[in-house]
Write a protein that binds this DNA or RNA. Sequence first.
RNA 1: GGUUCCGUGGUGUAGGGGUUAACACGUCUGCCUGUCACGCAGAAGAUCGCGAGUUCAAAUCUCGUCGGAACCGCCA
Length: 581
Amino acid sequence: MKTINNTSLSINDEGKKVILHGWVQKKRNLGGLIFIDLRDRSGIIQLVATPDSSCYTMAESLKNEYVIKVEGVISKRQSANKNIKTGEIEVILDNVVILNTSKEIPFEISNDTTALEETRLKYRYLDLRRESLKNIMVLRHNITYAIREFLNNDDFLEIETPILCKSTPEGARDYLVPSRVNKGKFYALPQSPQLFKQLLMVGGMEKYFQIAKCFRDEDLRADRQPEFTQVDIEMSFVDEDDIMNLTERLVQYVFKKTINYDVKLPLLKMKYDDAIDLYGSDKPDLRFDMKIHDISKVFENTSFNLFKNILDNNGIINAIKVNNAADKYSRKGIDELTEYVKKYGAQGLAFLKISDEITGSIAKVLSEEEINNIKNILNTENNDLILIVADKTTVVKQSLGALRCKLAKDLNLIDKDDYKMLWVTDFPSFEYSEEENRFVSMHHPFTMPKDEDVDKLITDKANCYSKAYDIVINGYEAGGGSIRIHDQDIQRKMFEALELSDKQVEEKFGFFVEGLKYGTPPHGGLAFGLDRLVMLLAKTENIKDVIAFPKTQSASDLMSECPNVVDDKQLEELKIKIDKI
RNA sequence: GGUUCCGUGGUGUAGGGGUUAACACGUCUGCCUGUCACGCAGAAGAUCGCGAGUUCAAAUCUCGUCGGAACCGCCA
């Protein structure tokens, strides 16, 4: 068995005879002397074959990615290579055994490989040999290990819940699995272990966690995979603060343990409404400021018809100030920003450039007083750029919220080594679904309303808030959770608010509601997006970088060519017929 | 469901209606005893994703299709 971590060798081992295993990363044949970079999981160590050695011919025949076993003596190098950990030493070879050969590899195995993601995904097992990807796998392991360590020390039990579940058509689309034993019936893969973890609380487990695979059949994004991992936590006899407190300490522990970063506690708490108002997002990135300001009142009596009409139609006018950036955006630059906000439904983007003489798209149509009022509200200085969106509230907030993030990125306002974390709390219980013409749960139907809002469940849904919270890190929703409803009366009211009939409730989650009737303790929890947490700690913006075998945007695996068609025999066993597509 | 972009030797890019499709890295051969992005000399390797159309002529233009990427919708 391979026992030595190759790069654990150092100058202190000089003279020692060693047996090493690994892959040929690189061979440099100087004619009378051969250098080989031997790679194992720990890194690179240099081997040297001299012409007087019996293994010289064997060393000559080595090619990239051959798997070899070598014997040799640790020696001090004539001149050290400061770029690698073992740069002071090398192994003078006595013996080389080829354990396996390798086809010529399709792309260079190095951190700065030029291969596209597409190529790397097809040969993911080769991609994993690259140090940067390997390091993320190590980091991911360290993170899950730290999580288990922390939660174990806090009396949590790690319990697995089923992968084959009942489909609950609320929320995300389910992945379905046909049942052979029960023909015509389907399992669904879990979108999260939500119901099971609550039933574990009913089952008296008190403190549960699981590093749980979850599945959602929705479209992919740079930070979204159809198959992902959640750190799922649930506790009994707790309130919101207990869970936030525990989670903070967990995050602090993981950051310290894995990247030696000190998280200062307690984290900032911000109400959902304030987050939307100030940052246009329920997951604000606080690494930079650039708040959104409401300048509607400046235009109460404006003669500028465009803005007047928007205000008359219950719209708002908001602005962000980009410090010292007026000269950084030409007409073309502004046009690009305009196109950007249009994606979020904004009709346009007005701008003002602050200087002795105000310029910009609406500089001419505004009165001097209006411009002065804007300058006062935004507290402007010379060369500030003011960007304004006027529209209905959701469009204004969403587009400016996205715009401030784009600007911060474009203008390099973000310190890449910084982490800004906060809690976003007091989420609305409901959001109005235009599609379904009714209020639907923002979180899920088992989320406890704020004590003072229980009565509003029926009477004032739009102003009903819940005991729900998200932990936001650098603009990512890293995790979210809530206190659950354990009270039967409140649960009934919730279903009523969602316009679910007794029959619908019974069909959708009868087993769950039945369970809640048998002495359910007050409970709540939270789920962490593990992949996103790894992304944050690894400082990458692509979720594929933190998953060993990820899927492409069309939810396929380029390596195994999955999904794929199946045998007619398999379909026949399941009594499934495929329609022409 | 929608918008935008990409597809050219093994890899990554350049190019672009016309005769030998360019460059870098890699590969192969020879030379080379201190390299570590080794060096030097030479060679092989591509019907430009696939299909149709326009044209005297398509890798280039058009349409379709397949694959990839980013985003909007979607993601309780």
